[in-house]
Amino acid sequence: MKVLVPIKRVVDYNVKIRVKPDQTGVDLANVKMSMNPFDEIGVEEAIRLKEKGVVTEIIAVSVGAQEAQETIRTALAMGADRGILVKVEHEVEPLTVAKILAAIAKAEEPQLIILGKQAIDDDCNQTGQMLAQLLGWPQGTFASKVSIEGGKAEVTREVDGGLQTIRLTMPAIVTTDLRLNEPRYASLPNIMKAKKKPIDMKTPADYGVDPSPRLKVLKVSEPPTRKGGVKVKTVQELVDKLKNEAGVI
């Protein structure tokens, strides 16, 4: 069976971003970009399923600028088989991405699509669920364990109260949580090999999707900052301050 892994190119999680002074967005000039960490986990999961013999082909898809091709190369170097880059000029909303992915899914007919639970730039946590709805498929979101057996996917999910396990008919959507696996690094030979793997270049129009956003961003501003406080010398002083100064205990 085929697996689709949608991957987003985002600001690296180690970067402390800066808001543009004119409040139109976040300054992305000369900022280190990487694959969204949850998507690395998605690629890794797909590769492990392939190593187990459950999966035959892994297709990495990114919707983004030309540079997102590098992100696809990273997925190919990890072990994905081929890539699709859907080129867009501007940022796209989760609903747009979901529509493009739905069209790709209809053409490629994967049995499983593994997305990240959340892109760490927009923090939306929507795309996988939207895609599931558009395709009429079930979803196992925030997955910490996935097993495929008897034509069904059993997914253990990280939820507010602990863990929940559900069983899904296939084809199905899975979104990854942090504990699903630890992604591998690509080896140098595999990075070389990845250069020869094919990447299809597409546009939203190829899938009949209008990429214009629905929401209007009025402004992007700095969050309120916290002032650092004081250092206390002893535990006794700490308890005294919490009780008599802050009044919180």
Binding site: I120, D123, L215, K216, V217, K219, V220, S221, P223
Partner: peptide, 14 residues
């Protein structure tokens, strides 16, 4: 909040 709360985004729905 976006970017782990390092920026606040104000959006308007149509």
């Amino acid at each position: 909040p976006i970017y782990a709360g390092n920026a606040m985004q104000q959006v308007q729905s149509p």
